[in-house]
């Protein structure tokens, strides 16, 4: 942690950490405690009086049909996004790892969606699936399938999942490829000499060896789907139709800034915070195992 030999100037280290600590206190710690505090309050409709109600907001949330549905939906959404983007990334990385010439070219062409903002990704997909003009609804019509994600909740969910998964493929691909390239060639060659076919080698050698990466990506994808997909939902469906795509982050925003239900929104924030802390701890345990301190 600390270097064997270190400086012991009295004021300098404080000056060095001061900017980060100041920003952390003002913009992280204070708002977070405020969120916790507000989650115990109920404000009347005009914002004139507030009442301290302990866990009433939380109790209300856990009996609120809409919130519980949103919770279940978020879990489903995250699982679907993680599954689709991780499995396609795994397949692509598996093949890219086999390529000797042109691997960098393939990588270059596969990684750029990472650079695209979620809300932009949403915009691109909403354009492609525009019910009147979009390319995909046009083709789907040939098969007699009617696409309108403004009216059909399942289609809206599917569209949001596709857009979110698409953006995340690049990230997962990079990590899978790096993990596969870190496997010593000799292990794969030993497998080949033992007579394992390429596909068998992949499932019995490569996949188990990269399982730490899979685990790591699961956590990262869950965090991504939970929090960073706000822009996609906001651009594509705005939580609709009929709340069909209202995931938790979107609901916090919507209840707080649009519905102005401060206590309820704060309580939701606190629940999300607990979930992030939980995921961070899982991830940190993984880190600890990997990194030698």
């Amino acid at each position: 942690m600390l270097k064997r030999v270190h400086f012991t100037k009295s004021w300098l280290p404080f000056a060095l950490v001061a900017p980060q600590i100041a920003i952390t206190l003002i913009f992280f710690i204070w708002p977070a405690t405020q969120a916790v505090y507000q989650s115990f309050l109920i404000e009347d409709a005009f914002g004139l009086s507030t009442e301290f109600v302990w866990f009433e907001n939380f109790q209300y949330l856990f009996t609120d049909e809409i919130y519980l549905n949103s919770f279940g939906r978020t879990i489903f959404f995250s699982a679907a996004v993680a599954f689709i983007s991780m499995s396609s990334a795994l397949i692509l990385a598996g093949f890219a790892d086999r390529v000797i010439r042109g691997a960098t070219v393939y990588r270059t062409l596969l990684i750029w969606p990472y650079a695209i903002a979620p809300v932009l990704a949403g915009a691109l997909w909403v354009f492609m699936f525009n019910p009147t003009l979009g390319i995909f609804p046009y083709f789907l019509e040939f098969f007699g399938y009617d696409w309108n994600h403004y009216l059909n909740g399942s289609q809206a969910m599917l569209l949001v999942i596709l857009a979110a998964a698409w953006k995340q493929i690049a990230y997962n691909f990079l990590f899978y490829l790096a993990a596969m390239q870190a496997i010593p060639r000799s292990i794969i060659e030993a497998g080949a000499i033992d007579g394992a076919s390429p596909i068998r080698r992949f499932w019995t050698l490569v996949f188990p060896l990269i399982s730490p990466t899979t685990f790591f990506l699961l956590v990262i994808n869950a965090v991504y789907a939970f929090f960073e997909t706000f822009g996609i939902v906001h651009a594509v469906t705005q939580g609709g139709p009929a709340n069909a795509t209202t995931i938790l982050v979107y609901k916090v925003y919507n209840d707080g800034f649009v519905g102005l239900d401060l206590g309820g929104s704060a309580a939701q924030s606190v629940i999300l915070m607990i979930m992030v802390i939980f995921m961070t701890i899982i991830q940190f345990r993984y880190l600890e195992k990997k990194v030698q301190y």
């Binding site: 204070w30 708002p31 405020q34 969120a35 507000q38 929090f227 707080g256 999300l272 915070m273 992030v276």
Partner: peptide, 9 residues
């Protein structure tokens, strides 16, 4: 504490 979870305060 990602910004999304403490957005209002």
């Amino acid at each position: 504490l990602p910004v999304e979870v403490r957005i209002l305060p």
